[in-house]
């Protein structure tokens, strides 16, 4: 894989992280998980202006987390699952890295403890 391809893939992952950092945008996505919705419908639970909601939607669209249907006049938004899967994949891999590290940390601490005990028995005093 070329550096340019890696850069594009990681920029996408990075923009997904950024998009998910905001609680309003997470709430919008959670709403879309139960089906398509218009901007007006999405704005309902929030005390926010339509332009403010539209701004959040643009960020989500830029991150590839939502898509908007062009054919319908009310242009409903729908959830796109792919970026969420990428994030989940990354997170699981990195979690596993730490999980295995902690296995080794545990083994190391046990080894140190058993060495200390052994040392204690063979001490002259």
């Amino acid at each position: 894989m070329s550096a340019a391809t890696l850069r594009t893939e990681n920029d996408r992952l990075s923009s997904t992280f950024s998009a998910l950092a905001d609680p309003t945008r997470r709430a919008i996505l959670a709403r879309l998980a139960s089906g398509e919705a218009s901007v007006t419908e999405l704005a309902e639970p929030f005390e926010m202006s339509l332009p403010a909601i539209s701004k959040h939607l643009r960020v989500l669209e830029g991150a590839g987390l939502i898509a908007r249907r062009k054919e319908a006049q009310w242009r409903p938004c729908r959830l796109e699952a792919r970026p969420l899967k990428d994030i989940a994949h990354w997170t699981e891999n990195y979690r596993q890295f730490w999980d295995e590290s902690f296995d080794r940390l545990d083994a190391y601490l046990r080894e140190v403890e058993s060495e200390a005990k052994h040392h204690g028995r063979t001490k002259k005093h």
Binding site: F17, L20, A21, P23, R26, A27, L29, A30, L32, A33, L79, L84, K85, I87, A88, H89, T91, E92, Y94, R95, W98, D99, F102, L105, D106, L109
Partner: peptide
């Protein structure tokens, strides 16, 4: 693990993870 579950709530969409271990 927050991300990747079915996004039924805003909380389930948080990125990152929490890992807890006990060491004796």
């Amino acid at each position: 693990i927050h991300a990747g579950r079915r996004p039924s709530s805003p909380e389930s969409l948080k990125t990152g993870f929490v890992l807890t271990r006990e060491f004796r």
